[in-house]
Design a protein around this nucleic acid. Structure first.
Lengths: 128, 128
DNA sequence: TTAAGTGCAAACGGTTTGCACCTCA
DNA sequence: TGAGGTGCAAACCGTTTGCACTTAA
């Protein structure tokens, strides 16, 4: 998968990619670093950032600018989706995208991607 | 306007609010600071941040988490709208919101607000 | 054997905090 | 006159950079 994108699949990169792909919390660089430094005691934050950048450039990850000053990462090959951020528990949920998002855009503009973020209370926090 | 929200309308706060309200570029704290320090030579970044927080708490401004590590500000009393970020010139354009954005959300969730960001090329950059 | 990847340490930059001074109601 | 506002300086923290070491094709 990485070879196809011109990336050398080092153990660290594989770990970063599979962690983001398998964890549904849209982790930050620091969360990834904390969780992986058990497996790689010598792991450095620099390597996590290097890997995240390389994987993002290779279109295997997507950067989510959901929280200012704390980038979060998403597994890109998944179908396009929006995000719901719970203001109480802070969890980030995937949501389906509403249809015809581009309908209301000015003609002449070229859309690369659409980011949609809902903020509010998740079902559990809403009940409490 | 500020009195109604329990804010003392100091000259600096008035300047920050009216600058954000009148300039259509969704400025960052630093842009606001640079543009206003002509009028207020003694203005400090701290005061700009203080004002932005107070005005945000008073629901007169809204924080836009569009660019990681560089918060941008929007005049809140305007009707809800999305944002289009041009990847070439970096300008941020207001866009109308598509209808029925909440349709596809899981039942039980409570939506405070929806943020929608388009990224791509604006009409001018698209022509070049 | 050499281009690419790793990781330490230091720098960077937007933001926050501590604190002393100022200023209106 | 006292609660609230201003602004300097330093701290904070996520991220980037410089550089020497390591590793795999």
């Amino acid at each position: 998968m990485m070879h196809r994108n011109g990336l050398r699949p080092s153990a660290q990169r594989i770990a970063v990619l599979s962690f983001v792909a398998n964890c549904r919390t849209h982790p930050s660089a620091d969360e990834i670093y904390s969780r992986l430094s058990g497996k790689f005691p010598s792991l450095s934050r620099t390597t996590v950032y290097n890997s995240l950048h390389a994987l993002t450039d290779a279109s295997l990850l997507r950067e989510l600018e959901i929280e200012s000053g704390n980038m979060r990462y998403d597994f890109k090959p998944q179908p396009a989706h929006g995000h719901f951020v719970c203001r109480k528990c802070g969890k980030i949920f995937d949501t389906p995208l509403p249809r015809s998002l581009a309908d209301s855009l000015t003609p002449g503009f070229c859309i690369d991607c659409v980011e949609i973020v809902y903020r509010g209370l998740c079902d559990i926090c809403n009940k409490q």
